[in-house]
């Protein structure tokens, strides 16, 4: 008994702490993922489950990858995804940077309230946030009406429209992405901007810099880690997004997430879906490494 408790205190406890979560992640995260990688090399068959490792291509069948790289459908889907996510990331940066900077400039008590207001949407349903925009963008909504009136006032009569066709377009996808992912941009940016020493601003001013030069020479360069971390935090999930393009996107030019889902559920082509997924993941390795490299620096924890 003493022996066992001694062993537990010296090794067993640590082994348990490490082992349980480790095994869990190995079994329920890594193993499933390895199965997907294997699946991407299988052959589609009209059986259940709809694949086999035998047949014309014993074990390894690269057909799915060949199609991903040659079929225009997949290429277009990748481009649409990267394009939409990239534009959404830029817009989040353009709107989020001044917001984050503004948050560092308001008084302490206001800052806490405003930060809570930034985080609050996180706690409301993601689906419902997308849905809220479906209501606003629809043809008969007050928002669309307002925009339409504004448009009609500004342009010649010939260009007047009854409503602006916003839904089911890349515009809608990007708009909703900016809406749902903006907090992901603001928070790391705020973290990195808040850490900056205001004395550095004063030092630059003291050495003859006007406020905009202070921003360009001191604030902006030091917030680069925050910009990259926030940018990747928007870009990565946006590029793989399924819900937003399914609800407000253009069905004729699907994004990659939707393509994977369709390939899997509707076409029942598991190897194809897996191959697209693997390619998407490989594409995301770069941005992910960028993110993890800069994230620690943005939050100042090394």
């Amino acid at each position: 008994m003493g022996r066992i408790s001694q062993w537990f205190d010296r090794r067993g406890f640590a082994a348990m702490l490490i082992g349980l979560p480790y095994l869990w992640l190995l079994a329920l995260f890594l193993l499933p993922f390895l199965i997907v990688v294997a699946m991407s090399l299988a052959t589609k068959t009209p059986t259940a489950p709809p694949f086999s490792f035998g047949g014309d291509h014993p074990w390894v069948n690269g057909q799915a990858y060949v199609r991903v790289l040659t079929d225009g459908l997949y290429l277009r889907a990748f481009l649409t995804s990267v394009g939409n996510a990239g534009v959404a990331m830029m817009l989040c940066l353009l709107l989020g940077y001044p917001m984050a900077l503004g948050l560092t400039r308001v008084s302490k008590s206001w800052r806490n309230i405003l930060l809570m207001l930034v985080i609050l949407p996180f706690w409301t349903s993601f689906l419902l946030r997308v849905y809220a925009w479906m209501g606003l963008m629809g043809k008969n909504s007050w928002f669309n009406g307002l925009l339409t009136d504004g448009w009609n006032l500004l342009v010649p009569m010939d260009w007047a429209v009854k409503s602006i066709p916003m839904m089911n377009s890349n515009f809608a996808v990007v708009l909703v992405m900016v809406y749902t992912y903006l907090p992901f941009m603001i928070l790391p940016l705020y973290a990195s901007l808040e850490r900056l020493d205001p004395v550095l601003d004063e030092a630059a001013m003291d050495l003859g810099s006007r406020p905009w030069q202070v921003f360009r020479d001191v604030t902006l360069p030091q917030s680069v880690p925050g910009i990259i971390a926030g940018g990747m935090l928007v870009f990565i999930p946006a590029a793989g997004e399924l819900v937003i393009p399914s609800l407000v996107g253009d069905a004729s030019s699907p994004m990659i997430g939707r393509l994977i889902s369709d390939e899997f559920s509707s076409a029942r082509d598991w190897p194809m879906a897996s191959a697209v997924a693997v390619v998407l993941l490989v594409l995301m390795v770069g941005p992910t490494m960028l993110y993890s490299h800069y994230q620690a620096r943005a939050e100042g924890t090394k």
Partner: peptide
Amino acid sequence: FSGLVTAPLVMPEVITGISSLIFFI
């Protein structure tokens, strides 16, 4: 281990979903 802990954070949900489903099947 640290890789396994970070990866699900950035893994597109579609892929996590599909891999879980295939795994369960």
